[in-house]
């Protein structure tokens, strides 16, 4: 594969990347702030947008990690928030209580993510389908309860949440937000590329086969356990990485990130974006975060009512999500667009 073909293949990704790199400066220009001011992290609209974008990147990373086990491998896990929360809490505890440096913290998070994937992997061969969902829900809620318990309050902050994590100055989200923005962007894009590689690799193909029909994959001679474990490990690592970034970015890690609600968030995001389409995680995270943000701002408390309604409407009417529907219908949409340009003609398809 030559270099040009990679660029040609990922043209959309490249355009997105360039847009995202330019985004803080463009927003700054609209706001009347010069690129230099944005570069120097002066407060303004651009900085606010950067913050929102970082949250979206972290959510997208988290949703990507759920997509690889649910959308690609077909494992319905209700304990996914634990992957995220382990990364988030370990980072906080390592920096705050153990006084470790950032690379060492990252190392710990990395090891822990592998260990917990193996822990989930232990139950893999025994249970399938709904039972797997219940067991993972069980493991995760035990973790949630442990985090919330007062016995560990000095480390985890019990039900208040982990706070007071002092982030190194060179990456602090308050003073060096633009740097944080670029780091999060680079992490997200590289993980996305890794995932694309994984999905298109022979291993990823077997994972897709497991989703479609596990017994047939076994019949073909694949030990599906190893493939599921591989997907789980990758997912666990990514979610822990998202948790790592989350702790660095947010001033307080709320115990809600370990609850079932946060798993549902991931489910919602990839449902909006499209299950099993990696780009769906991006699109879904953007839609979800902006919707949530806008609703909370203009409607207030009942925002989660609208969230639930959006969820139900998506399930009923757009089950393949935005990206999935686009892929399925892109030909028809183009055709319809062309005919719309020619003349108004309602019965063009279906």
């Amino acid at each position: 594969m030559t270099r040009t073909s990679i660029f040609a293949k990922n043209r959309g990704l490249l355009i997105t990347l360039v847009l995202l790199v330019l985004l803080p400066f463009i927003v700054g220009l609209f706001d009347g702030a010069s690129p230099v001011a944005v570069w120097n992290n002066l407060s303004g609209n651009s900085k606010f947008i950067q913050g929102l974008a970082i949250e979206i990147f972290i959510l997208a990373l988290y949703a990507l990690s759920y997509d690889v086990i649910f959308g690609i491998t077909g494992l319905l896990s209700f304990g996914h928030s634990m992957f995220f929360a382990v990364g988030a809490y370990l980072t906080g505890i390592a920096i705050k209580t153990l006084d470790l440096s950032l690379p060492a913290t990252f190392g710990i998070v990395f090891v822990a993510s592998i260990v917990q994937a193996v822990l989930f992997g232990l139950v893999l061969p025994r249970v399938r389908g709904i039972t797997f969902a219940l067991v993972t829900l069980g493991i995760a809620s035990v973790f949630h309860i442990v985090i919330m318990s007062t016995e560990l309050g000095t480390y985890t902050g019990a039900d208040v949440g982990l706070q007071g994590v002092i982030v190194p100055e060179w990456i602090s989200p308050a003073n060096e937000r633009l740097r944080f923005y670029f780091i999060a962007l680079v992490v997200l894009i590289s993980i996305y590329l890794l995932y694309q590689r994984f999905v298109n690799s022979p291993t990823g193909r077997v994972c897709t086969a497991i989703r479609e029909n596990e017994s047939r994959a076994q019949m073909l001679g694949y030990n599906t356990f190893y493939f599921k474990l591989a997907a789980l490990t990758l997912s666990s690592f990514t979610a822990a990485l998202a948790g790592f970034l989350h702790t660095l970015y947010q001033p307080i890690v709320s115990p809600n990130v370990a609850g079932l609600g946060f798993t549902v968030t991931a489910l919602l995001i990839i449902l909006i974006g499209g299950v099993g389409t990696l780009q769906g995680a991006f699109v879904g995270a953007i839609v979800y975060r902006l919707l949530d943000f806008g609703l909370r701002r203009y409607i207030g408390e009942s925002a989660s009512f609208i969230n639930g309604a959006v969820y139900v409407l998506f399930v009923l009417f757009i089950p393949f999500g935005i990206v999935g529907t686009w892929r399925l219908r892109s030909f028809q949409i183009k055709q319809g667009w062309e005919s719309l340009l020619k003349a108004f003609h309602p019965d063009s398809h279906q």
Partner: peptide
């Protein structure tokens, strides 16, 4: 997923 959404609603 539908029932999850309904539960939130």
């Amino acid at each position: 997923m539908l029932t999850l959404g309904l539960s939130a609603i």
